[in-house]
């Protein structure tokens, strides 16, 4: 898995590539913690290059969303979600917990 971080004025963008499983989800958790530890709570996850997500990855998303939404200080939004990943999000009942944008730019612009 590879993660690229881009800091914008009103949000942080993480572009993730590859598999998010039990081996790699700690790396995603670390990348998210780095942002929230620095006071960034408005985060866009570009999932366009994600090939797989397991429940370990989904747990990282939930944990980040709980951190960001606390005190109404922000939220995690998802962008450019591939069909298989969307199916996993739907199965886990995550589509009601995250705003999902078709395009990354639109997601960044939402903040």
């Amino acid at each position: 898995m590879e993660i690229t971080h881009t800091a914008f004025k009103h949000s942080d963008l993480l572009k993730i590539s590859g598999r998010i499983d039990s081996a790699t989800s700690p790396q995603l958790a670390d990348a998210l913690s780095k942002i929230t530890d620095n006071g960034g709570y408005r985060i866009v996850l570009d999932l366009s290059e994600v090939s797989f997500i397991s429940s370990a990855g989904l747990r990282v998303l939930i944990s980040a969303q709980k951190t960001c939404k606390r005190y109404n200080r922000g939220e995690v939004v998802l962008a450019a979600v591939p069909a298989n990943i969307m199916a996993a999000l739907e199965l886990a009942g995550f589509t009601t917990l995250f705003k999902i944008f078709p395009e990354t730019l639109e997601a960044v612009g939402s903040f």
Binding site: I62, K66, A88, G93
Partner: peptide, 19 residues
Amino acid sequence: PDITAPLEERENHGLGLYM
């Protein structure tokens, strides 16, 4: 897991077996 629970009540176990 209760996949309709609000964010704060989501639990961290059982999702894998459910899937």
